[in-house]
Computed example of a mutant assay.
Amino acid sequence: MTRWLFHISAVAAGRFLIVLVFFLLPSISSFAQTVASTQAFDAGTRLLNSGDFRGAVASYEQVEEKGLGSIALFHNRAIAHFRLDEIGHAVQYLERASLISNDDPRVEHSLDIVLTRVADTYSELPVPIWTRFQRVVLGVASGRQLMFTGIGFYLILCLFLFMSILGYWTGAWHRRIRVVGALVSVLLITMALSSSIWPAYPSEAVVLAKEADLHDQPDSDSEISDFIHEGLVVGLISEGDDWALVQLPNGARGWILTRQLGAI
Protein backbone atom coordinates (compact mmCIF):
# COMPACT_ATOMS: atom_id res chain seq x y z
CA MET A 1 0.00 0.00 0.00
CA THR A 2 2.78 2.40 0.94
CA ARG A 3 4.68 1.56 -2.25
CA TRP A 4 1.52 2.17 -4.31
CA LEU A 5 0.96 5.56 -2.67
CA PHE A 6 4.60 6.45 -3.22
CA HIS A 7 4.24 5.54 -6.90
CA ILE A 8 1.16 7.80 -7.25
CA SER A 9 2.96 10.65 -5.49
CA ALA A 10 5.98 10.30 -7.77
CA VAL A 11 3.78 10.33 -10.88
CA ALA A 12 1.88 13.39 -9.63
CA ALA A 13 5.12 15.17 -8.81
CA GLY A 14 6.49 14.37 -12.26
CA ARG A 15 3.38 15.73 -13.95
CA PHE A 16 3.53 18.84 -11.77
CA LEU A 17 7.15 19.44 -12.78
CA ILE A 18 6.28 19.02 -16.47
CA VAL A 19 3.45 21.55 -16.18
CA LEU A 20 5.68 23.90 -14.18
CA VAL A 21 8.45 23.74 -16.78
CA PHE A 22 5.89 24.23 -19.57
CA PHE A 23 4.68 27.48 -18.02
CA LEU A 24 8.11 28.70 -16.93
CA LEU A 25 9.93 28.14 -20.21
CA PRO A 26 8.40 31.20 -21.98
CA SER A 27 9.25 33.38 -18.98
CA ILE A 28 12.80 32.06 -18.85
CA SER A 29 13.20 32.56 -22.59
CA SER A 30 11.79 36.09 -22.39
CA PHE A 31 14.09 36.93 -19.48
CA ALA A 32 17.13 35.59 -21.35
CA GLN A 33 16.14 37.59 -24.42
CA THR A 34 15.79 40.76 -22.34
CA VAL A 35 19.20 40.21 -20.76
CA ALA A 36 20.81 39.65 -24.17
CA SER A 37 19.11 42.77 -25.57
CA THR A 38 20.26 44.86 -22.61
CA GLN A 39 23.82 43.64 -23.06
CA ALA A 40 23.70 44.45 -26.79
CA PHE A 41 22.30 47.92 -26.06
CA ASP A 42 25.00 48.62 -23.47
CA ALA A 43 27.66 47.39 -25.90
CA GLY A 44 26.27 49.68 -28.59
CA THR A 45 26.33 52.66 -26.23
CA ARG A 46 29.96 51.97 -25.32
CA LEU A 47 30.86 51.77 -29.01
CA LEU A 48 28.94 54.99 -29.68
CA ASN A 49 30.80 56.83 -26.92
CA SER A 50 34.14 55.49 -28.14
CA GLY A 51 33.52 56.68 -31.71
CA ASP A 52 32.88 53.28 -33.33
CA PHE A 53 29.61 54.37 -34.91
CA ARG A 54 29.34 51.46 -37.36
CA GLY A 55 29.82 48.99 -34.53
CA ALA A 56 27.19 50.84 -32.48
CA VAL A 57 24.67 50.53 -35.33
CA ALA A 58 25.37 46.79 -35.56
CA SER A 59 24.77 46.34 -31.81
CA TYR A 60 21.54 48.34 -31.91
CA GLU A 61 20.38 46.24 -34.87
CA GLN A 62 20.76 43.14 -32.70
CA VAL A 63 18.40 44.68 -30.15
CA GLU A 64 15.82 45.53 -32.83
CA GLU A 65 16.02 42.03 -34.31
CA LYS A 66 14.70 40.74 -30.98
CA GLY A 67 11.60 42.89 -31.45
CA LEU A 68 12.52 45.47 -28.82
CA GLY A 69 12.46 49.23 -29.19
CA SER A 70 12.69 52.30 -26.98
CA ILE A 71 13.30 56.02 -27.17
CA ALA A 72 16.89 55.55 -25.98
CA LEU A 73 17.55 52.83 -28.57
CA PHE A 74 16.16 54.81 -31.52
CA HIS A 75 17.76 58.06 -30.35
CA ASN A 76 21.21 56.52 -29.91
CA ARG A 77 21.01 54.73 -33.24
CA ALA A 78 20.01 58.00 -34.92
CA ILE A 79 23.09 59.70 -33.44
CA ALA A 80 25.32 56.90 -34.75
CA HIS A 81 23.83 57.25 -38.25
CA PHE A 82 24.21 61.03 -38.09
CA ARG A 83 27.89 60.69 -37.24
CA LEU A 84 28.22 58.34 -40.23
CA ASP A 85 26.61 61.05 -42.40
CA GLU A 86 23.59 58.80 -43.02
CA ILE A 87 21.02 61.56 -42.69
CA GLY A 88 18.10 59.49 -43.96
CA HIS A 89 18.54 56.81 -41.32
CA ALA A 90 19.10 59.46 -38.65
CA VAL A 91 15.76 61.11 -39.49
CA GLN A 92 14.08 57.69 -39.68
CA TYR A 93 15.04 56.65 -36.16
CA LEU A 94 14.39 60.04 -34.60
CA GLU A 95 10.91 59.97 -36.12
CA ARG A 96 10.42 56.49 -34.66
CA ALA A 97 11.46 57.82 -31.26
CA SER A 98 8.95 60.66 -31.69
CA LEU A 99 6.17 58.13 -32.24
CA ILE A 100 6.86 56.72 -28.78
CA SER A 101 6.99 60.15 -27.15
CA ASN A 102 6.43 63.31 -29.17
CA ASP A 103 7.58 65.66 -26.41
CA ASP A 104 10.96 64.22 -25.44
CA PRO A 105 13.35 67.23 -25.40
CA ARG A 106 16.38 65.14 -26.41
CA VAL A 107 14.63 63.77 -29.46
CA GLU A 108 13.24 67.18 -30.46
CA HIS A 109 16.66 68.81 -30.11
CA SER A 110 18.42 66.09 -32.10
CA LEU A 111 15.74 66.15 -34.80
CA ASP A 112 16.09 69.93 -35.17
CA ILE A 113 19.84 69.50 -35.70
CA VAL A 114 19.51 66.61 -38.17
CA LEU A 115 16.83 68.37 -40.24
CA THR A 116 19.26 71.22 -40.94
CA ARG A 117 21.15 68.69 -43.09
CA VAL A 118 18.11 67.82 -45.21
CA ALA A 119 18.42 69.47 -48.61
CA ASP A 120 14.72 69.63 -49.53
CA THR A 121 12.45 72.32 -48.12
CA TYR A 122 8.78 72.14 -49.07
CA SER A 123 5.90 74.19 -47.76
CA GLU A 124 3.58 71.88 -45.85
CA LEU A 125 -0.13 71.67 -46.56
CA PRO A 126 -2.35 72.90 -43.71
CA VAL A 127 -3.96 70.13 -41.69
CA PRO A 128 -7.75 70.05 -42.33
CA ILE A 129 -10.02 70.96 -39.42
CA TRP A 130 -11.61 67.50 -39.50
CA THR A 131 -8.20 65.83 -39.20
CA ARG A 132 -7.25 68.09 -36.27
CA PHE A 133 -10.48 67.21 -34.51
CA GLN A 134 -9.93 63.54 -35.31
CA ARG A 135 -6.44 63.63 -33.80
CA VAL A 136 -7.72 65.25 -30.61
CA VAL A 137 -10.45 62.63 -30.21
CA LEU A 138 -8.16 59.70 -31.03
CA GLY A 139 -5.71 61.02 -28.47
CA VAL A 140 -8.36 60.25 -25.84
CA ALA A 141 -9.87 57.01 -27.16
CA SER A 142 -9.05 54.46 -29.86
CA GLY A 143 -11.21 53.84 -32.92
CA ARG A 144 -12.54 50.62 -31.38
CA GLN A 145 -13.52 52.42 -28.17
CA LEU A 146 -15.31 55.08 -30.20
CA MET A 147 -17.21 52.41 -32.11
CA PHE A 148 -18.35 50.56 -28.97
CA THR A 149 -19.31 53.82 -27.25
CA GLY A 150 -21.28 54.91 -30.32
CA ILE A 151 -23.10 51.57 -30.40
CA GLY A 152 -23.85 51.98 -26.69
CA PHE A 153 -25.45 55.38 -27.30
CA TYR A 154 -27.40 53.87 -30.20
CA LEU A 155 -28.79 51.11 -27.96
CA ILE A 156 -29.79 53.70 -25.36
CA LEU A 157 -31.51 55.67 -28.12
CA CYS A 158 -33.39 52.52 -29.19
CA LEU A 159 -34.51 51.98 -25.59
CA PHE A 160 -35.88 55.52 -25.34
CA LEU A 161 -37.66 55.17 -28.69
CA PHE A 162 -39.18 51.86 -27.63
CA MET A 163 -40.43 53.33 -24.35
CA SER A 164 -41.90 56.34 -26.16
CA ILE A 165 -43.80 53.99 -28.50
CA LEU A 166 -45.27 52.30 -25.43
CA GLY A 167 -46.37 55.69 -24.16
CA TYR A 168 -43.65 56.13 -21.54
CA TRP A 169 -40.79 58.63 -21.37
CA THR A 170 -42.52 61.15 -23.62
CA GLY A 171 -41.56 64.33 -21.78
CA ALA A 172 -39.50 67.20 -23.17
CA TRP A 173 -36.32 66.00 -21.44
CA HIS A 174 -36.75 62.54 -22.89
CA ARG A 175 -37.06 64.02 -26.39
CA ARG A 176 -33.88 66.03 -25.82
CA ILE A 177 -32.07 62.88 -24.66
CA ARG A 178 -33.16 61.06 -27.82
CA VAL A 179 -31.86 63.87 -30.03
CA VAL A 180 -28.54 64.11 -28.17
CA GLY A 181 -28.16 60.32 -28.16
CA ALA A 182 -28.74 60.17 -31.91
CA LEU A 183 -26.22 62.94 -32.61
CA VAL A 184 -23.54 61.48 -30.32
CA SER A 185 -24.07 57.99 -31.71
CA VAL A 186 -23.73 59.14 -35.33
CA LEU A 187 -20.68 61.28 -34.52
CA LEU A 188 -18.81 58.53 -32.64
CA ILE A 189 -19.54 55.82 -35.20
CA THR A 190 -18.55 58.19 -38.03
CA MET A 191 -15.29 59.01 -36.24
CA ALA A 192 -14.55 55.31 -35.72
CA LEU A 193 -15.19 54.44 -39.37
CA SER A 194 -13.28 57.44 -40.72
CA SER A 195 -10.25 56.62 -38.56
CA SER A 196 -9.95 53.27 -40.34
CA ILE A 197 -10.56 54.69 -43.83
CA TRP A 198 -8.70 58.01 -43.47
CA PRO A 199 -6.12 57.63 -40.68
CA ALA A 200 -5.45 60.75 -38.61
CA TYR A 201 -1.74 60.02 -38.94
CA PRO A 202 -1.06 58.58 -42.41
CA SER A 203 1.85 56.19 -42.93
CA GLU A 204 5.14 57.96 -43.53
CA ALA A 205 8.56 57.03 -44.82
CA VAL A 206 11.97 58.66 -45.13
CA VAL A 207 14.03 58.99 -48.30
CA LEU A 208 17.26 57.05 -47.70
CA ALA A 209 18.90 57.57 -51.10
CA LYS A 210 21.19 60.57 -51.53
CA GLU A 211 18.98 61.60 -54.45
CA ALA A 212 15.87 59.89 -55.79
CA ASP A 213 13.83 60.45 -58.94
CA LEU A 214 10.12 61.13 -58.48
CA HIS A 215 8.32 59.57 -61.46
CA ASP A 216 4.84 60.22 -62.82
CA GLN A 217 4.28 56.48 -63.22
CA PRO A 218 5.76 53.33 -61.61
CA ASP A 219 8.15 52.96 -64.53
CA SER A 220 11.79 53.99 -64.76
CA ASP A 221 11.15 55.24 -68.32
CA SER A 222 8.29 57.54 -67.25
CA GLU A 223 8.70 61.29 -66.89
CA ILE A 224 10.57 62.55 -63.83
CA SER A 225 8.56 65.25 -62.07
CA ASP A 226 11.02 66.07 -59.28
CA PHE A 227 14.23 65.10 -57.52
CA ILE A 228 14.04 64.47 -53.79
CA HIS A 229 16.88 63.94 -51.38
CA GLU A 230 17.98 62.01 -48.33
CA GLY A 231 16.13 62.71 -45.09
CA LEU A 232 12.88 64.02 -46.59
CA VAL A 233 9.80 62.64 -44.82
CA VAL A 234 7.03 61.73 -47.29
CA GLY A 235 3.54 60.32 -46.97
CA LEU A 236 3.29 56.68 -48.02
CA ILE A 237 0.14 56.27 -50.13
CA SER A 238 0.79 52.75 -51.42
CA GLU A 239 3.76 50.44 -51.55
CA GLY A 240 4.72 47.52 -53.79
CA ASP A 241 7.78 45.34 -54.16
CA ASP A 242 9.45 47.72 -56.62
CA TRP A 243 7.61 51.05 -56.51
CA ALA A 244 5.90 53.18 -53.89
CA LEU A 245 3.46 56.05 -54.38
CA VAL A 246 4.42 58.92 -52.08
CA GLN A 247 3.11 62.37 -51.28
CA LEU A 248 5.46 65.27 -50.68
CA PRO A 249 4.81 67.78 -47.88
CA ASN A 250 3.37 70.23 -50.44
CA GLY A 251 0.81 67.67 -51.64
CA ALA A 252 2.54 66.63 -54.88
CA ARG A 253 2.54 62.91 -55.58
CA GLY A 254 4.84 60.62 -57.49
CA TRP A 255 6.42 57.19 -57.68
CA ILE A 256 9.77 56.27 -56.15
CA LEU A 257 11.69 53.01 -55.93
CA THR A 258 10.70 51.20 -52.74
CA ARG A 259 14.30 50.37 -51.86
CA GLN A 260 15.04 54.10 -51.62
CA LEU A 261 12.62 54.51 -48.70
CA GLY A 262 12.77 53.63 -45.03
CA ALA A 263 9.57 53.07 -43.06
CA ILE A 264 8.96 55.08 -39.90
Rank of each mutant, 00 (worst) to 15 (best):
G167C: 12
S29H: 12
S196F: 13
Y201N: 10
I177R: 13
V118W: 00
S50R: 06
G240W: 00
W4G: 11
T38N: 14
S185D: 06
H229Q: 06
L84G: 07
E223K: 13
L115R: 01
W173S: 15
G88K: 02
T34K: 10
I256F: 10
E230H: 07
F22P: 03
K66R: 07
I228G: 04
G67P: 01
F153T: 14
W255A: 12
A80S: 09
P249K: 06
R54I: 08
L73E: 05
P218L: 08
S30V: 03
Y154W: 15
G167N: 13
S101A: 06
D104M: 00
A141S: 10
T121E: 09
S27W: 08
D42N: 11
I18G: 12
H75P: 01
Y122Q: 01
R15M: 15
M147W: 14
L232C: 07
A58G: 00
V179K: 11
R144Q: 14
A252W: 08
I165L: 14
F148S: 06
T2H: 13
F162H: 12
V118M: 00
S110E: 02
F41L: 05
F16D: 09
L73C: 02
V246N: 00
Q134D: 02
L84F: 04
A40D: 09
W4L: 15
A97Y: 00
L236Q: 02
L125V: 05
I165S: 13
A40K: 04
A192M: 04
L155V: 15
G235S: 07
L68C: 03
E64I: 10
V233T: 10
E204V: 09
Y60N: 02
G14K: 05
T190E: 06
Y93P: 03
L214H: 05
H7V: 15
A244M: 03
E65M: 08
P126A: 07
N76L: 03
S164T: 10
V206N: 07
V107I: 00
P105E: 00
F227D: 08
T2N: 11
S27N: 05
Q247V: 10
M163I: 13
F153Y: 15
H215N: 05
G44I: 04
V91L: 08
A36S: 05
V246H: 01
S110T: 04
L125W: 03
E223R: 12
A263T: 12
F153S: 15
S185T: 05
D52G: 04
G254P: 07
S98M: 07
E108L: 11
V140S: 09
E86P: 03
C158R: 14
V136W: 13
A209T: 02
Y122N: 04
S142G: 11
D221F: 14
R175A: 14
E64S: 07
F162Q: 12
E239Q: 13
L99P: 01
I256C: 11
V206G: 04
I28S: 12
E95V: 02
V57A: 03
D219Q: 09
L20V: 07
V57E: 01
R106L: 05
R144S: 15
D52T: 04
